[in-house]
Design a binder for these strands. Structure first.
Lengths: 208, 208, 208, 208
DNA sequence: AATGAATGAGGTTTCATTCAT
DNA sequence: GATGAATGAAACCTCATTCAT
């Protein structure tokens, strides 16, 4: 395949993904017909099946691509920071900023993905674990360097941290006129978790 | 309607709900046919529609009933406790114990409910908010009494707390051989949140 | 199920089979939509699936029923006859009469069945073998009684006899204005086979 | 067009036909995609349409070519023989030998062709008639020369003879472990037909 | 002549729900 | 209230064919 052909193919695949994000965000995954995505992408119905195995595969491909982007960007966000606790704060903010800036993508990732039987029951959400692993590595780093208490389970807390962010994001997406901004929520969650896990210094030390 | 008839009605309605919990937990909401529930409940297909408006209504009714139970029991769990922070710990443990003891109910509430378009998009999950409101009230109580920092947003943290528990529970349900017990997770999450929100006053030793 | 209900059910099943024979004969199996059969039978599309597993199953059910009828009638046709050679002649006539009288059924059995992948590749045509077994038994009877030569293979000849009848019938069905009558063909084929297999005794001129 | 180009065209056309025979025999006509044939023939999908009007046309072209070969060879097989009855015997053997030696071709001609709507309903199988006409001519020859009874209808018997051979061949192809050899079947069928149609002269014992 | 990406028509089947008994 | 046979809408996906390159 020539380079031009590759680009054309890439561009068409991307064209379909972009259209699907729009359509799924607007009508939901189950509420959208493949034909709707095709019309939005300005291709024929069958063309979608030249790039994706099934409607489910299209959804999963969106997830893979967008989560891949998030994983990479999250790594970049914490790279220049050395304090693990500050890293957590930045991750929280990054997560929420992402939701806010790419609301359609967020709608699909947060809401529609969960509505797909395939996703939750047959698809192994590797990317999701990779994303949480970033949090996990920061936690372990902090434990190793002593800024995070050693009785913190990175396995549990990484998921709890993600769950907290996720639940807020979900609510924000589902509630058109939310009462709180996502940035404020990110800061609040980060503050609670940071205080909750940080090692207490020479200051009178909590015994537990 | 006679009392006996009412009881019979109640009994048949409950019979259907119990059957639906079994069937939905086993095959998923979308993977279960109304006829499957009918067979499990040992009633005719049409009979279900004498008690529930639709298949979605059946799912929502399970949610209403089971969340109603949880709300009531959660209230009872924290009633005898006075320390708001200890109340949070007990709520976390109660939540996870419930998941562990009623795994089929948990599967339906945590997993299957999310697979129903109707639930997330048209149904207002009042019970869920009531459940989180319990957490919220404890938080506000703590803020008022000074054991919780006043910069804690009860609106955000109640949802973050629930999200943390929920995400762990979801993972536990979806992963047959989880590495951590739910009780341990509950304690861990409670500890992080309690430390994260408690006021650092002249008090020397936090009790949790 | 009450007797009335059974009759109703039977009648509806038969109603669908009768409609399917009409429609399949008119437009071919592949050329007919399930909806066409439903309209002809004056039932809803879905009703067909209360009685048949699939469109293929409907075709096979027609085959089973009609071949079952033919098998039974063929047995009756030869029952009162004692001469195996005369039995063969009557079977040939019976076969062709059937084609002529139930041309729509014949069209489906002879032509459409062969167009169904399922039939020829996955379905074991037991009934077809049973039908040919009737011929085979007559042959063996004749061999045993000495009126048929002992070097005749009943296994081969039964199929050859059927193939000869079948090919003529097929042609007759596919060619609207056939040059020869089926009855005449039946007699001709019977005569050739009878002469071809009969033991040559002291008699010089065969009587058939 | 140069001679070389003609040969190339012929070669590519033949390449596609050969590939199609393989693929159709393996997966059936309906079960094979044009793309499968293209891959087997090592050409692009579209190339097939430079040589054949449609998928059906490809099937028909196979039929035309292979039946053309058979017709020619059948003529050659009977050319050196003078006795019409012996000619029939040789035709039967030739037919079955062909099936046995070119089983893939036979699978396509005998089985797959019948699965094609087009073939049976719109295509006039001229070649098939030509093939049967060879049998017919032999019969008429025999009638004219007196070795075949004059009450034999060549129109009917040619088709019956073919039908007998065809049915046996079909069964042999569809049943992997057939009980009888095709050569034996050919001899058996020939013997029955020859005895069945030959004039009973002063001679008492038929020679075949 | 060769390519292969793009096209788009077309139909079986499921299953939630109804309603006559 | 209970039944369960009948209903009918709704959409994914395949694949033969085309045509710009």
């Amino acid at each position: 395949m020539s380079l031009a052909a590759q680009q054309r193919k890439h561009s068409k695949r991307q064209q379909i993904i972009d259209a699907a994000v729009e359509v799924f965000a607007r009508s939901g995954f189950h509420g959208s017909r493949v034909a709707d995505v095709a019309r939005e992408a300005e291709v024929a119905d069958g063309t979608i099946y030249n790039y994706f195995k099934s409607k489910d595969d299209l959804l999963i491909s969106i997830f893979e691509q967008k989560m891949g982007d998030m994983i990479q960007q999250a790594e970049e966000v914490i790279a220049p920071v050395s304090d693990p606790l500050e890293k957590l704060r930045r991750l929280a903010c990054f997560h929420m900023d992402n939701v806010e800036r790419h609301i359609n993508v967020a709608k699909v990732l947060q809401v529609e993905l969960r509505l797909s039987n395939t996703f939750m029951k047959e698809y192994e959400p590797v990317r999701l674990r990779q994303y949480m692993d970033i949090i996990g590595r920061v936690l372990e780093e902090g434990i190793a360097s002593g800024v995070i208490r050693s009785d913190v389970s990175s396995v549990i807390v990484r998921r709890a941290f993600f769950g907290a962010l996720d639940e807020i994001a979900m609510q924000w997406i589902l509630t058109p006129g939310a009462r709180y901004g996502l940035r404020e929520s990110a800061e609040q969650i980060a503050r609670v978790f940071v205080r909750g896990i940080q090692a207490t210094g020479p200051r009178v030390s909590p015994s537990v």
